[in-house]
Structures are given as C-alpha cells and as structure tokens.
Simulated assay, not measured.
Amino acid sequence: MTGPILIADLGGTNLRFALTDGQSAWEETSMEGSRFATLDDAVAAYLARIGRERLPERAIFAVAGPSDAEKMVFTNRDWTVPVAPLRERFGLKQLAVVNDFAAVAHALPHLTPDDCRTVGAQRDGRPGPMVAIGPGTGLGVGLVVPDGRGYRVIPGEGGHATLAAQNGLEERVIGYLRNLHGHVSAERALSGAGLADLHDAVCAVEDLPARRLDAAAIVAEGATDPGCREAIGLFTDFLATVSGDLALTAAASGGVFIAGGMVPKLGDLFDGGRFRRRFTAKGRLAGYLDPIPVRLITHRESALLGLSRAAKTILKDDLDTSV
C-alpha cells in the first residue's frame, strides 16, 4: 500500500490529526473534542478540512485510555468506539490503536535539544530506558527500553497508581481527596481537575477561605494567593515523587521526560529546583537518581512526532493486538 498515513492523537481535551509518510507530518490540525458527538464526526471533519480527494488507506490512532484493537475507550471522555465500524466507514485497510503515551514515548529517541528544556540541575544521563510522564486532562505514562536493535515502547496506565504522601500536610490532603474520590491515584492530583482538587483540599485542611477555582484561575493567582501557591507547590512535589518512583522502577538512566499541557501552563510557578530536590528524595537511593536527567518536552506535537516516526513499524505489527 502506498500513500499517506492518517495519524491522530486523541486526548481528553483536544483531538490532533495529521498525515505522515513515516518521516515527517503535514496537514496538522487540532480540534476541541467537545465540538463532536462522536469520533466518527471528528475524523470526517478533519478529512473535510484538508480537502482530500482520496482517503488514506492506513491510520494510527493514539487514545487516552485503556484501548485495544477491538475498541477505543476514552478515560476522560464519554466515548467507547468499536474499531471495525470506524475502519469500514472510512475505507481504511489498516487501523492500529495505541496508547496516547505510547505515542509520546515513541517520540523520545527523536527529540533534539531544541525540543526540551532541563528541569532543575543539568544532568546528561546515560544510555538506557527513558520514561515519559504527562499531566494534562489526565496523567499519561510511557516507557522506552533499548532492545539492541533500536528501542521498544511499553505503554501502561501508571497514572492510576496509588498516590503516596511524604509528610503530614500531604497525608491530610490525600485524606480529603480520598473522601472525595475513594481511590486516590496520581492522576487525581496531577491533572487539570487534580490541581483544582488540590486547591480545595489545601483550603479545607489549612483553614483558608473556600472557593472553587479551575486550573487556569489557580495559575493566574498562583503568585499572590496562599491557597493557589500551596496547591501548585503540592502539584510540583507530587509530580516529582511519582516521576522519581517511575525512574527507580524503570532504571531510567536515559531520563524522565515531562509532557502534557499542565506544566508549561504553570510557567515560572513551576519550581524546577524544588522538583529536583523532591525527585531525588528517595533515602538510600538518592544517589542512584541524582545522575538521571529530567526534561520538559517543548516540542509542539510530540505525540504526532512519535506516531510519524514509528508509523511503519506499528503498521507492520499484527493489528489483532494493541501496541
């Protein structure tokens, strides 16, 4: 089969589409998912926007949720999409489904120094596994492991691992979140909605005036309002703890890479030095973590980059299994 491949990064808030030849991407378009009742409608809108005379025969969709080759399940959107009817409607001979952070992880080996900035102390890292973590609408996690011939991407749902406290304030905050949600996963704190809940929790346990703010308002008042400032500090600490746990688990000598929309929106309120101190605060293993670099991905569309570079490899795989 010849011709371009349709690639899509289907997040909890935005749907990003492009075409690729397996090297570069073009016709990149981002659309708000809330505009569409179904994924079919969004795909049709993208194809109409770019005015294609002939539909691509192959596609790869990266989905924010535990999906597989039979159906796409969106964790932070009320969509469950059977794959076969979608493939048939658009005349696709191949449609592969991958985890959204598998797509980000595929980008890591292809990022240049201009695509990232260092968080905290500069570290060069060593060849070895790399971890992607991304707070946004949810919390994504992906792993890249060298395999002797290149690398292998291992997707997962690490954002739903249980969040742990490191001090009394965090214990009280997690207790508040537990009363609200039951199980307190990392995503319950490390997401847009999570930052809003952290602010509510701080106000409750610190006896500050209660007022419900969304993430954008918390960032806007982060430099002046005590509750907002404390919530952002907790967000930073929790993200560092989870990132450090992942680095230990994966032996991520190649580095930890922060993706997602939340950290860039924090701007100067995100304290890289504070993050770095908490990242290495693992007792006897602090020295193990110290050489591991942490980088914030600044590439505009890292998931599409990953899908583009890995497209031919993904589409060679047996499409009866997820990637």
Rank of each mutant, 00 (worst) to 15 (best):
I154S: 07
P155D: 10
G156P: 11
H160Y: 12
A161L: 15
T162A: 14
L163V: 11
L163S: 14
L163G: 11
A164E: 13
A164W: 12
A165E: 13
A165S: 15
Q166C: 12
Q166K: 15
N167A: 08
N167L: 08
G168F: 13
R172G: 03
R172L: 14
I174Q: 09
L177W: 06
L177E: 05
L177D: 05
R178M: 10
N179V: 02
N179Y: 09
L180V: 14
H183N: 11
V184Q: 07
S185V: 05
A189M: 10
A189N: 03
L190S: 03
S191P: 05
S191D: 04
G192L: 04
A193C: 08
G194D: 10
A196F: 12
A196V: 09
D197I: 04
L198R: 03
H199C: 15
H199F: 12
D200F: 02
A201E: 06
A201L: 07
C203H: 10
C203E: 12
A204L: 10
D207H: 14
D207C: 10
D207W: 08
D207F: 12
A210M: 11
A210C: 04
R211P: 02
R212C: 09
R212W: 06
L213H: 05
D214I: 09
D214E: 13
A217D: 15
I218R: 05
I218G: 04
I218D: 05
I218F: 05
E221N: 12
E221V: 02
G222T: 08
A223H: 13
A223E: 15
T224V: 14
T224Q: 12
T224F: 06
D225L: 02
D225S: 03
D225P: 01
P226F: 09
G227Q: 06
C228T: 04
C228I: 04
C228F: 03
R229S: 12
R229E: 11
E230W: 06
A231V: 01
A231D: 01
A231L: 01
G233R: 15
G233W: 05
L234F: 04
F235C: 03
D237Q: 07
D237M: 04
L239Y: 04
L239K: 02
A240D: 05
V242T: 08
V242H: 11
V242F: 13
S243I: 00
S243H: 00
G244C: 01
L246Q: 03
L248G: 00
A250H: 00
A251L: 07
A252T: 01
A252E: 01
S253R: 00
G255F: 01
G255V: 01
V256L: 01
V256D: 00
F257L: 01
I258W: 14
A259F: 10
A259C: 12
G260N: 08
M262D: 04
M262Q: 09
M262T: 06
P264M: 09
D271A: 09
G272V: 02
G272C: 01
G272P: 02
R274F: 02
F275V: 02
F275Q: 04
F275M: 03
R278K: 14
